[in-house]
Design a protein around this nucleic acid. Structure first.
Length: 765
RNA sequence: UGGCCCGUCGUCUAAUGGCAGGACAUCCGGUUUUGGUCCGGACGGUCGGGGUUCGAAUCCCUGCGGGCCAGCCA
């Protein structure tokens, strides 16, 4: 799998020894069918474990007895197996109910959890809002003994549903709402499909998920972005109950596909509303739907790696899936001919002895197997392939024109019969002699079209599937999402297919030449009746060209009433004064920094708004640091450090900054070196000067020494040198960069710039 | 005056302070007994403003835009 932000984390964890091996998991709740978004998550978790030689588990997150069902457990296993991915362990969160209960007990004993006896509504009210803190439950300070007693009786089934809950005792005023004493257990006298009636209480996701991860030895717990908020509880719980190495949660962006919907609720609405044929309707983005449509599993895997893994909110075009499907099928799908919208073609001049032609199953491979295709003077061809009056660019059959019958003869169209409305009804054509496997002299052959013998061809039904919705995002436009269902997402055609398909296995995926990839519908097309599903159409340059004027802009994108978002270039892009958002006290400090010390306002503002930075500034100035330089460092580098570290590193002091600055000022360190040193000493608290002496650090400004690096940089990048001399002057910075890097930041930038320019301009060649 | 996450070609995604690259889509050309495949080429991007730096997509500040969180769902 290509590198991504998760593999970076894993690389670092392995390198630091935080974990010894990788254990991932895919945690579906067995309350619905898997869809292609899940496939992405499965591929990610599986791929990580595989690539790092770790383990991958599938875990049913079955902690809510009222929604879960063994039928889904089965379908989830089927779907994952179909994807071709194997798990090391199949687990159930419900198998850990006993252990989870013990952990809850420990929390209670430690005073970290309590039984709340408020009503559901009171708990909701007490939680506060997004902008107001919550209020503590009157039961929050129950004694450990009382909590133990009550929780034990909850477990014993003494109370009715809703009488009590177990809550974590965290912080009712936390800005992170999930930390406002989250509910851990609820009373639910319900039959669980696995644990039966053994439990009257069930843990909630926020409790069960992290702790099950920990129990299972998961190292990297991957989930989608919306669980970002829940990470706070995750860390709180495993932090209180498990030693390192604890599992850590990382969130990635879920897959969102254009022109479809992915939520369980909406998918279910499509099924229940009869808008589709079921969960495995080939138009559905479910794994079952993809499978029934004939999409090969490797195409889904390819697609999953093509979409990548990031935290950016994104929408993916179904074209990427389609292309992955074609990539998978093109090399393996035998070619055959089928006519979906047949119109009779009457031939004259077909040689008497010919009743069959031999055609390769893979025309691009000269060594491929062949099949025999019956031919007679009565054929059918595609109605689209005939025009009485051919439009501009039309390369197919029209009166007087000759085309190749694919794998057979060239025929010239004599007449075309049309009905009153102009619809083509019948075509008469003459076979050109000696055109089998050779081009007739003096005849322009416009193209090759597919055909099937009218008599020998097998009757078949063809189902043509297309995107479910005619807008990219059915949620972003007005009305209910079902308002935007495409009317033509399923088209049924009745035509003929060449009889060779009758001899193939029922699972064979074909390319119907010039049309697309098809296979026999697993539900309706596997007995005597031939029903073919179109897996994906071939790219069709002609259709694109023909439809272009009508569509004017193509793709449903236009259907979205695109608000002319003013975005960044909005009117108030005007500069905002750095002090604008400071409170009165900070503003006074900032003004003092500016007026008394000459600090740039842009640097003064962040320093003034942080007491730590302000203190460092005062100390540094007292230690003799130049105020403006110090301020710049504080506003930039120290803030960077602070952010990365979570707080001001312990070893950092104003004196240290002053010394670092002095070293730069004296020319003993470059800024870059000083910065690198800062990162180091801020944590260790070492004296910068001592480190400089110890390591023999010095600025390299000696022309002769620089010249060596410059020469090497030029020698290693001859193409860039040539490009520079050819006029691409921007490459100067590139070479400076090479030299700076080679010197590990020790070279004096100004000297390097000159040396590089000199070498580039006046060097030999 | 809630917290957090995210902004790179039309779309998805690389670049980890040093030439903004790839894939899909689009367009053009070549090969072709599939208007397919394959091959070649083109188009096209760092959300705005300020700062730090020799050098910023990347670091700092700020604005704008999008998303998530107030289930005894997961």
């Amino acid at each position: 799998m290509p590198p991504n932000f998760v593999t970076e984390v894993i690389d670092a964890d392995l390198a630091s020894g935080r974990v010894e091996r990788v254990v991932t998991r895919f945690p579906p709740e067995p309350n619905g069918y898997l869809h292609i978004g899940h496939a992405k998550a499965i591929c990610l978790n599986y791929g990580l474990a595989r690539d790092y030689g770790g383990r991958f588990n599938v875990r049913m997150d079955d902690t809510n007895p009222t929604t879960e069902d063994p039928e889904f457990v089965r379908s989830i296993q089927d779907d994952i197996a179909w994807l071709g991915l194997e798990w090391d362990d199949l687990r159930y969160a419900s198998d850990g109910f006993e252990e989870l209960f013990a952990l809850a007990l420990r929390l209670v004993e430690a005073g970290h959890a309590y039984v709340d006896s408020q009503s559901e509504e009171a708990i909701r009210d007490g939680r506060g809002t997004l902008t107001e803190p919550g209020t503590p439950s009157p039961y929050r300070d129950r004694s450990v003994e009382e909590n133990l007693d009550l929780f034990g009786r909850m477990r014993a089934g003494e109370f009715p549903d809703g009488a009590h809950v177990l809550r974590a005792k965290i912080d009712m005023a936390s800005p992170v709402i999930v930390l406002r004493d989250p509910v851990l257990y609820r009373i639910k006298h319900a039959h669980h499909y696995r644990s039966g009636d053994a439990w009257p209480i069930y843990p909630l996701y926020d409790f069960a998920h992290p702790l099950t991860d920990a129990l299972e030895g998961i190292t990297h717990s991957l989930c989608t972005l919306e669980f970002d908020n829940n990470r706070a509880v995750y860390d709180w719980l495993v932090g209180h109950l498990f030693p390192e190495p604890r599992p850590r949660q990382y969130e990635f962006a879920r897959l969102v596909l254009d022109h479809t919907v992915m939520s369980k609720r909406k998918l279910s609405a499509l099924v229940k509303g009869g808008f589709v044929d079921g969960w495995d309707d080939p138009r559905m983005p479910t794994i079952a739907g993809l499978r029934r449509r004939g999409v090969p599993p490797e195409a889904v895997r390819t697609f999953a790696t093509r979409v990548g893994v990031t935290k950016s909110l994104s929408r993916t075009s179904p074209a990427l899936l389609d292309e992955s499907v074609r990539d998978a099928l093109n090399p393996v799908a035998p070619r055959v001919m089928a006519v979906l919208d047949p119109v009779p073609l009457e031939l004259t001049g077909l040689p008497r002895h010919v009743d069959v032609v031999v055609a390769p199953r893979f025309p691009d491979d000269p060594a491929s197997a062949v099949r025999e295709v019956p031919i007679s003077k009565r054929l059918v061809i595609e109605r689209d392939d005939v025009a009485l009056e051919p439009p501009e660019g039309f390369k197919r059959l029209a009166p007087g024109r000759a085309v190749r019958l694919r794998h057979a003869f060239v025929v010239r169209c004599d007449t075309v019969d049309v009905d009153a409305s102009g619809r083509v009804e019948r075509v008469h054509a003459t076979v050109l002699p000696d055109s089998l496997g050779a081009n007739p002299a003096g005849e322009r052959v416009w193209s090759a079209i597919h055909w099937v013998d009218a008599e020998a061809g097998a009757e078949a039904t063809f189902r043509l599937y297309d995107r479910l919705f005619d807008v990219p995002n059915p949620d972003a436009v007005g009305g209910t999402f079902t308002d935007h269902l495409a009317s033509d997402s399923l088209l049924e055609r009745h035509g003929l297919v060449e009889p060779s398909v009758l001899r193939d296995g029922p699972d064979t995926r074909y390319q119907f030449e010039r049309l697309g990839y098809f296979w026999r519908d697993p539900r309706d097309g596997r007995d005597d009746t031939l029903v073919f599903d179109r897996i994906v159409p071939l790219k069709d340059g002609w259709a694109k060209r023909r439809d272009a004027p009508a569509n004017a802009g193509g793709d449903g994108a236009l259907a979205t009433p695109a608000a002319p978002a003013p975005s960044g270039a909005s009117p108030d892009a005007a500069e905002v004064h750095p002090f604008a958002h400071l409170d009165a006290g900070a503003r006074a400090t900032a003004e003092r920094l500016r007026d008394q010390h000459g600090v740039d306002p842009a640097a003064a503002a962040p320093i003034a708004s942080s007491s730590e930075l302000a203190a460092l500034f005062a100390d540094g100035v007292a230690a003799g640091a130049p105020a403006t330089d110090l301020a710049t460092w504080l506003a930039n580098d120290v803030q960077r450090l602070t952010r990365a570290h979570g707080s001001v590193p312990a070893g950092l002091s104003g004196t240290m900054l002053a010394r670092l600055l002095a070293l730069v000022d004296d020319g003993r360190l470059t800024l870059r070196m000083a910065r690198a040193l800062l990162d180091e000493v801020a944590h260790s608290g070492e004296d910068p000067e001592a480190l400089v002496v110890e390591r023999g650090l010095s600025v390299q400004g000696d022309p002769a020494a620089l010249a060596v690096w410059v020469e090497r940089a030029l020698a290693e990048h001859p193409a860039e040198v040539a490009a520079y001399r050819g006029g691409k002057r921007g490459l100067h910075g590139f070479f400076v960069g090479q030299v700076m890097r080679a010197s590990q930041g020790r070279a004096d930038p100004a000297a390097v710039q000159d040396a590089v320019r000199e070498a580039l301009e006046h060097g030999e060649g």
